[in-house]
Design a protein around this nucleic acid. Structure first.
Lengths: 270, 270
DNA sequence: GTGACCCCTCCCGCGGCGAGAGGGTCAAGT
DNA sequence: ACTTGACCCTCTCGCCGCGGGAGGGGTCAC
């Protein structure tokens, strides 16, 4: 009497490798229908083919094993579908990043980029309405969107005295986490919810304008950085962005204008 | 006199992390403009910002460091663009696989799949025109396309006596490498180029027809496998596919018909 | 001179898989 | 009953690119 399919047969049926099946057993993802107590041989049944395939597909979508496990453990198909769509959404975001990188790369490899106009500007201290937060790990964009929405809600157009902006710690870019502030100059800053009045200190900024969508904004950052260094300056402190024309103003992303301001100070060339 | 930018300053300018810059140095990807002989301090120059950014973008596209290195080492921009497009193409293929996995997953999670019609068929030995090869590692599809094209070229329509097919070792699916044969029954098989007459042995096949594009063909494979096991049979040997209606016949992929034949034998239930 | 930062090197962990070593088991043929 | 060869077992290591931490030294402004 055969106790079921051997691991090799099951591997052939599911198009998974033997090693992989063993790992899935070990991880508790796909328990063999029977395991011989004495030899340790794994035996599978035909009913295990569909779950094995589900795992296979999820892995092709780079769903981590732990998450696959929790998906399989979820009985409710509704809930299960949600978990899957959540992951698919993450894939979409990653795809967006990939697209950005391609655009950015093309820009970088373009033979003759137009000259970048950089202006040195001393900005006096000013008090603005702002939302500040310690943002971690890849939730930067959602946080930004929520903060900006809150700001917009609290201060309707007649209150606003200039375009919105943001102040971003450098660690945000290098480490993916750090302090960020989203702000807008308004007639009378006051505290509502997360929004509160904040005094931005006086700074000397090297300012350049990035044109178009933000896919390749890092290219402009880099060119601004190079300019700063070549002019014997050093950068210091969080960077400022001002959204002169942004997605809130026009759908035509090629008309967006983003002002980048990097705090600088003169280096003593001794 | 400052010898250049410190690694921390350079990190802020390029939005790369300090650790990552050190790794790139170690890997020979981005040599600092100067390294202090005594302290080991790395110093970078403004001219290194663009290459650093290129590396950054390529890494976002998951180009392995080794390949990034070879891209940077390539002087000829023409050649360089080729390397990059080659990688972008790989990304496209991966995207296709992802799409397939999504389709396949949906299919698997569908509550009530239609009954699968399976037929047991004894196929006598026959001699066909075939291209055979040891195919390795993810070049399966290109190899298939080339082999089929060669076959089509050698045997024009009047010579053909049936739809084309393939015979695929199971390891192809589990390990991604193995022996595959692409064949077509023709009036008079003869050797031309890689094409040669091959006698396919007689086999007992469990046969099912997969309808539609091949994205979710693994689902049909799994269901056929389950059927085979439930009918007290065991699978053995390479699987056969017959392309009743394929991309060569119609662009409407939902009308494709692929016959899957799995060699089986009766299990002694003693 | 002293403290606050910055920088250095070296080592480990992560995730999912392949690969190999070293050894036991199964089933068919002698 | 015994051999043989295919199959199965466990365990450990390597891959890739990055982060994190330990432990130690350098730089610079007060």
């Amino acid at each position: 009497m055969r106790p079921g399919l051997t691991i090799g047969e099951f591997a052939a049926l599911t198009h998974l490798s033997v090693r992989t099946l063993r790992r899935y057993h070990e991880a508790g993802l796909l328990e063999p229908a029977a395991v011989d107590r004495f030899t340790g041989y794994r035996y599978y049944s035909a009913e295990q083919i569909p779950p094995a395939q589900v795992i296979h597909r999820l892995r092709e979508l780079d769903v981590p094993l732990a998450e696959v496990k929790s998906i399989l453990a979820t009985q409710d198909p509704q809930r299960r579908a949600e978990l899957i769509t959540a992951h698919l959404q993450r894939l979409e975001e990653q795809l967006d990043r990939t697209r950005s990188a391609v655009v950015s790369l093309r820009q970088l490899l373009r033979p003759d980029p137009a000259e970048l106009d950089v202006e040195l500007r001393s900005v006096p201290a000013r008090t603005v309405a702002a939302v500040t937060g310690q943002v971690a790990q890849a939730v930067v964009l959602p946080w930004y969107a929520a903060a900006m929405a809150e700001l917009d809600a609290v201060f309707p157009p007649p209150e606003r005295t200039g375009p919105p902006g943001g102040r971003y710690a450098n660690e945000l870019f290098t480490d993916g986490a750090g302090t960020m502030t989203v702000f807008r100059p308004v007639r009378e800053p006051h505290a509502v919810g997360r929004v509160e009045p904040v005094e931005l200190p006086a700074v000397d900024l090297a300012v350049a304008v990035h044109r178009g969508p933000h896919d390749d904004i890092d290219v402009t950052y880099g060119r601004l950085g190079a300019w700063v260094v070549e002019h014997a300056l050093a950068v210091d402190g969080p960077v400022y962005e001002t959204y002169l024309v942004g997605p809130r103003d026009t759908d035509a992303s090629e008309r967006w204008r983003t002002e980048i301001g990097w705090p600088v100070f003169r280096v003593n060339p001794d």
